[in-house]
Amino acid sequence: MNVAAETIAERPATPSVDGSDTVIQAHGLTKLYKNARALDGADFRVGAGRIVGLIGPNGAGKTTALKAILGLTDFQGELEVLGMDPRRQRPQLMRDVCFIADVATLPRWIRVHEAIDFVAGVHPRFDRAKCERFLERTKLKPNQRVREMSKGMIVQLHLAIVMAIDARLLVLDEPTLGLDILYRKQFYQSLLEDYFDENKTILITTHQVEEIEHILTDLLFIRDGKIALTTTMDEMGARFAEVLVSAAQVEAARALHPIDERAAVFGKSIFVYDGADPEPLARLGEVKRPSVSDLFVAIMKGTYA
């Protein structure tokens, strides 16, 4: 399995197919910490109007990559975000980039109206009326302090502020961590309904892959500081296949070079294939597109071996 995953990693990064403007372009992105390589020559490109999931195991370099994109950390290699160098042009870049880095980053002392006044004062792209419309749907009161709110309410406030900013790139780092299920559903629903359009790009990292699978247009798998897979969801459906194979067919299935095999119910097995010919697969059993989390497991298995 390890071998199969590495073959994928060694393939040159496929450029996004949309052909529209490039929002993020990274080449040989590397970050060395004292005793570790958080990023090890990562290459990737994110186009405009995409919703990209940056997915990888803990310590794979997800957060470091986001920090580099947001200009929060120094790095080696090339990285352009909206045509700017995040190291040198962070304040300008933040006019067009928003980020939510998990739920608890609003200052605890601030009141709702102070947060809005402040962002309205310093951010040229903030639409106050829009923000207030979003807040009307919530139970937040203008004089309420963040320290008096539940996690779910804090994220409602943060999201109302961010969605009222006409930015071109939104970066979300585990945005729903620690939220209960109602707020989590609501979070992504608001983003899709009231925020996302073809001029905006969203880059998300999360452990709850199932939750965002239906909204993603692109996948970036990251492992050991390198990009292990980059694909659009459409390409992924064409390239990867998952087949449910009965016990009698297992040997035939193995002969077709699966990248992953796992047991299913009733003695059957599930095989995942990369770029296999669909004809022989169809003879083995029912073929479908693997879920993002199953594909993730198939590709990342070597990491934990």
């Binding site: 947001l70 300008q92 006019r95 980039v97 200052p107 951010h123």
Partner: peptide, 11 residues
Amino acid sequence: DRSILFWKSLP
């Protein structure tokens, strides 16, 4: 308290 991440998200 990590609110630096909020302040740094503004221009």
